[in-house]
């Protein structure tokens, strides 16, 4: 940022030198026209949004001075800085205006293309609270992990009230595959840690199992039936005697 201001000062110096040849009165008369031109140019140049924002920043910062009719030479120069290139005003200031957008571009680094290219990283120089950045990183990583699991295995949509059949590998039990059939009574949506709760009857005793949806130990999920329910959590089934009577 400091070097950006340094650039501004440099530009101002250069333009002061160049304007010694130009009549100051002429500059003051055409000043308002330049300002309008700069805004127009920015809209034409908005492929680089950062540059546009730089120009708007300039106009906002120095706007009060520019509007006043008895403005000094220096502030009129500043207002013209973004408009030089479009008007092909002076050759040495053209290089300066070329420097300006590139510098701004590298400082902010938050153009849409950049963000999409490195969507995992937050913008580099932005000064945000670190815990927010950290949480953002966690969200991205969580989303990526879910995508990866979904791309590898087909996971059907599960809702409370569905009667599903699972084939689960139990690593602790010599990797035996056990088949579990029951009704989904609860879902907890939490990204990669999404879990669902299955209730079934084994030997007349109600059993509830909690499974992570994206666990690699779940080899297959098949939806057998879809019951219509009016709750998100079917905990009332615990009180009913035999929720699986029909199956």
């Amino acid at each position: 940022m400091q070097s950006l201001y340094g650039k501004f000062r440099l530009v101002t110096k250069q333009t002061i030198n160049s304007l010694k040849n130009v009549e100051l009165s002429k500059v003051a008369s055409t000043e308002s026209r330049y300002l309008g031109c700069s805004i127009n140019r920015c809209s034409g140049f908005n492929s680089d949004r950062a540059c546009a924002s730089a120009a708007f920043l300039l106009n906002k910062e120095f706007g009060t001075k520019v509007v006043s009719p008895a403005s000094s030479a220096s502030c009129s120069i500043v207002s013209m800085v973004p408009s030089y290139k479009g008007l092909s005003f002076g050759n040495q200031s053209a290089s300066a205006s070329f420097n300006l957008p590139t510098r701004k571009f590298s400082t902010s680094g938050s153009t849409p293309e950049n963000v999409s290219a490195a969507s995992e990283l937050p913008p580099r120089i932005k000064f945000k609270r670190l815990d927010k950045t950290a949480r953002h990183i966690m969200q991205i990583i969580d989303k990526e992990a879910v995508e990866e699991v979904k791309s590898n295995r087909e996971i059907p949509e599960i809702k409370p009230g569905y009667i599903i059949q699972l084939k689960v590998v139990v690593p602790e039990n010599k990797r035996r595959v056990s088949v579990i059939k029951g009704i989904v009574i609860a879902m907890r949506n939490a990204g990669l840690n999404t879990t669902f709760r299955i209730r079934r009857l084994v030997g007349g005793v109600g059993i509830e199992n909690l499974f992570p949806l994206y666990s690699p130990n779940i080899k297959e999920i098949t939806v057998l039936d879809k019951k219509r329910v009016r709750r998100a959590k079917l905990y009332y089934l615990r009180d009913k005697m035999n929720p699986l009577r029909k199956h």
Binding site: I137, I141, A145, L192, N193, P216
Partner: peptide
Amino acid sequence: VKCGMTALW
């Protein structure tokens, strides 16, 4: 920077 915790398989 500590970003947070999660669990993987």
